[in-house]
Design a protein around this nucleic acid. Structure first.
Lengths: 232, 232
DNA sequence: ACCTGAACACCGTTCAAGT
DNA sequence: ACCTGAACACCGTTCAAGT
């Protein structure tokens, strides 16, 4: 039911790295193209979230009849896949020098990963549900290479990669969804205060009011990397 | 837009811990009740996933007219909230003895958390989008208490809790969605093999073919706990 | 207090047809 | 090769009404 979603390349789609700086061309008669569809989908997702993206509204926004999209694209799922991958491109020093600072490199890559997703808050929650696109594979490869150079044994490498993946995905998904509803935290905290005898610990540390997401991410990441570091 | 979803208790809903062992009563004239609605929703979610749950189909399954649900429930969102929370109850030794094995306790709690979510594969992806219900708060409180007893300073406690949360959520969401589409892994691996010169590292370690999810979770969790352990 | 059907304003997608 | 409108089979929810 939820299968079979990767590989199907549509009638004429080739994977593209759409550049996404809010395409504000003379909204005249640019011919419909996959690039424009994907770029517009990203704009709409940024503005309205996952629920707000509709094939009909997308067609409207792109200035075509509702059904024209389906010549360029198989279905709505593919629009999500392409929008996601277009947002995850890694523009980092690709190989450059063989730096000695593997830990700094890893931190940089993972913070960039998180930042890319937070720029498009719908992306984090979507990612695990979709096939792994080129850009994520690139990031995984780069991460693996860095950890390997740092001395992580091949036997531990998969666990190390997945641990960091899990941490980054969990942190980003959580942050992106809390972000969209500050009320929740207020409401939750209110409930907490009302029940401070039931939840004394997290009430005492004010777990749900802590606003320093970036700092917490960075500190937790350090903990994880401490755990992963090859013992000497 | 996505706000205002917590607290609203509907016209007559009180939080309930529905017991969910596949209610197979004489499908006759049990009166419609919130409990039955939530239990049936969980059944449908287990069978069909998030996309498969429809207010109309739910009403049908419960043997009532389509609109009868709305007397018991405000809207579809609330059905999700209640289904989620009902699935996350923690049945663990609540206080018992003041064990010395804090690490074993933490591992047990977090493995149980993951297992509860994997029993209902739709739950993990849903959790971060919803308000934090009673049962998650309970788990967070218990985790915080355990870490605190283990010697984690109050200043580090929030980061420690969030790090473990992030790891568990990331791992479970990833696992649950990979689970639902084995094709992806085959397809991805095929793409990988085709491009083994582009992704030599993750191809070499067979990252995408590693099937030992439980083992990887446990090992990665150990890494994280190593990082979190108070230094001596 | 509890349940209902008709109706409204939407969806994604198929299909046969236009240029 | 590219785009279209009409139509189908769905959605969640409002509302006025029934018992």
């Amino acid at each position: 039911m939820a299968a079979k979603r990767s590989g199907a390349q549509g009638k004429r789609s080739q994977r593209i790295g759409v550049s996404l700086q809010s395409v504000q061309e003379p909204r005249s008669e640019t011919p419909l193209s996959l690039e424009r569809i994907v770029a517009t989908a990203v704009e709409m997702l940024d503005a309205q979230g996952v629920e707000g993206l509709t094939m009909r509204k997308l067609a409207d926004r792109v200035g075509s009849g509702a059904m024209s999209l389906y010549w360029h694209v198989d279905n709505k799922e593919q629009v999500f896949d392409l929008a996601l991958d277009s947002v995850l491109e890694y523009r980092g020093s690709p190989q450059t020098v063989e730096s000695q600072d593997w830990r700094g490199e890893a931190v940089h890559m993972l913070e960039d990963w998180r930042a890319s997703m937070l720029r498009h808050p719908w992306s984090a929650a979507l990612l695990p549900r979709r096939a792994l696109g080129q850009n994520i594979l690139n990031r995984l490869e780069l991460l693996g290479k860095t950890l390997s150079r740092a001395g992580v044994a091949d036997a531990d490498l998969n666990v190390a990669i997945w641990s960091l993946w899990n941490y980054v995905m969990g942190a980003t998904i959580t942050r992106a969804s809390f972000d969209r509803s500050d009320d929740d935290r207020a409401a939750a905290q209110q409930r907490l205060e009302h029940l401070s005898e039931r939840y004394p610990t997290i009430e005492r540390t004010r777990l749900l009011l802590d606003n320093d997401w970036d700092g917490a991410f960075r500190k937790g990441l350090d903990f994880v990397l401490d755990g992963l570091s090859p013992r000497q």
